[in-house]
Design a protein around this nucleic acid. Structure first.
Lengths: 299, 299
DNA sequence: CTTTGCTGTTTATGGCGTACACGGAGTAAT
DNA sequence: ATTACTCCGTGTACGCCATAAACAGCAAAG
């Protein structure tokens, strides 16, 4: 179960980045297996995804799958990239209502700027996880990205180029945002699954826990908030969290903006300011030279 | 596995909130089982926690455990509250260096105010998850809180009482922060486990994925950042994320502070301002009366 | 015609949670 | 003293899971 040793990672890369497969007429194929697995996981979650059930759904034996997929873990990687393709088709390279005079690559402050773009990307990721809740359930730190995953990642990184953030900060923000979306989606997925499995809504279930509530009197802050009905109509936790996060990022970006000229325009690391003499623009000869070459080739 | 139907929740509550158990001399007992399970999970993670192994560790048969614990899921709930007790012992009710003139219950803006308190609480939660990585691996939306879990929750809620946040926002912030800590801890736990299982460090593993990097040229933002070495020494993702989050919360609090008097001081919901006449202080007769009674009993 | 390679099947191993029937030990009621 | 009952630990068994290994049918290549 736990990320089996089966198959080497490079084989995984080959599978993920294979060209759109020409499906042979009858029988099994990678594509068919992956699609069946996605359907199954959509219905039953990652826990409910088993090689047996996928095989049954396709009308083959369990072991037949292993002729095409190294193992369960790699199958999940393939499923991931498969569904990440959906959102990508719906995502235009540039927003259709954006003015075409903006360069497509670097984010200007037009069309909502970095914030609009990031929020849009986060929302798309969120909606994808509503369609495929198991996406947020995927565990493990060594999942190979397929082309679609990388495209999403690149898109989010791109939303922040042009800001005054340092490169490592851009990466950190995108990672943070991604984990936020997954955490919220995971919570929702678990809630829903538990509701549909037990037939009891979350509200009903917690509402029936009288034997618990009896014991909560001695907790002051909780009791106080309870009396004000703080849990009665909760904030939309995704929207609320996203706003807080983006606000936090905005604070950082503003901070960096103010000290923008204390940063190397080429590589983004902070400049060490000398006590006297002409203030330097680049952090090193290497960056100075890189910038020079870039100016020359550009035009 | 997936949150079995075994045992009713109320029984779970009884177990979680039982008085410190007087351990009978020999044989099994709830406490002993829970402690053995914690040790096991510390070493092997939640995936590695099985009833068989816990029983072996104690020198009993698997099924003997079921005389004391309804099932695996409830055992995990018990483990959770067990270790949450650790951090609680280390957490003083009021910070020792805080001036004693501050009321202990409501957070003043002294001693770092809400932000210092929240950050401290988040850090404690983080450190606990470094000691017990499996804490972040617990899945499911219907885990009963034990006394220690509630104490932590209450403490975080308390850090935000006294701010201008609305009650539902206090709850949302604490939830958001909790999920953030868990998400970061989960990532780290998975990374570490994978490293120790495979004997290959994360850096090495990803560094060896040449067959992947070959294909990343056509992604502009990613390539560009790559060249600047954005991944070479990454931000500390917990500290970075925590700062962003708290900054975001601070933005909201400031916003609420500015319009503080447009909010019912009793229940926190926004006031509807009438076009003319004396501006109302409370949102309803009910709240007005509640506040009156509180003034009377306090004075 | 034989060899090789691809695909799907069969069988088997070792892990998991837990239902169920049982046996012994201690205790209370008869 | 005997009976009944309850608590605790055991042994067996079921149905799930991933996957290793050997095998069978069929095609193209030698």
């Amino acid at each position: 179960m736990a990320r089996g040793v089966a198959g080497d990672p490079d084989h995984g890369v080959e599978l993920l980045w294979r060209d759109a497969d020409r499906e042979p007429r009858p029988g099994l194929s990678l594509g068919r297996i992956v699609r069946a697995a996605v359907e199954l996981a959509d219905a039953e979650g990652l826990e409910g995804l088993s090689m047996r059930k996928v095989a049954d759904r396709l009308g083959f034996t369990t072991m037949s799958l292993y002729r095409h997929v190294p193992g369960r873990d790699q199958l999940v990687d393939l499923m991931r990239d498969e569904v990440l393709g959906e959102a990508l088709d719906a995502a235009p390279e540039a927003a259709p209502d954006a003015p075409p005079d903006a360069p497509p690559d670097v984010a200007p402050d037009a069309d909502g700027g970095w914030r609009g773009r990031l929020e849009e990307a986060a929302r798309r990721a969120w909606e994808l996880r509503l369609r495929h809740p198991w996406l947020a359930e995927v565990r493990g730190s060594r999942h190979l990205p397929g082309p679609n995953a990388v495209a999403h990642y690149d898109h989010m990184l791109g939303a922040l180029t042009g800001t005054a953030l340092r490169p490592s900060e851009v990466v950190a923000v995108v990672g943070l945002l991604g984990r936020f979306v997954d955490a919220e989606a995971l919570l929702l997925a678990e809630t829903r699954r538990e509701e549909s499995r037990s037939g009891v809504s979350e509200q009903e279930w917690w509402g029936a826990r009288d034997s618990l509530y009896e014991r909560l009197d001695r907790f002051p802050a909780l009791s106080r908030l309870w009396e004000t009905g703080a849990w009665d109509d909760p904030e939309d936790s995704f929207t609320f969290g996203l706003r807080r996060l983006l606000d936090g990022v905005e604070v950082l970006i503003r901070e960096r903006d103010e000290s923008r000229d204390e940063i190397c325009p080429e590589c983004g690391t902070p400049l060490e300011t000398a006590p006297s003499g002409r203030p330097r623009v680049y952090c090193s000869r290497a960056c100075q030279q890189r910038a020079y070459r870039k100016r020359r080739s550009a035009g």
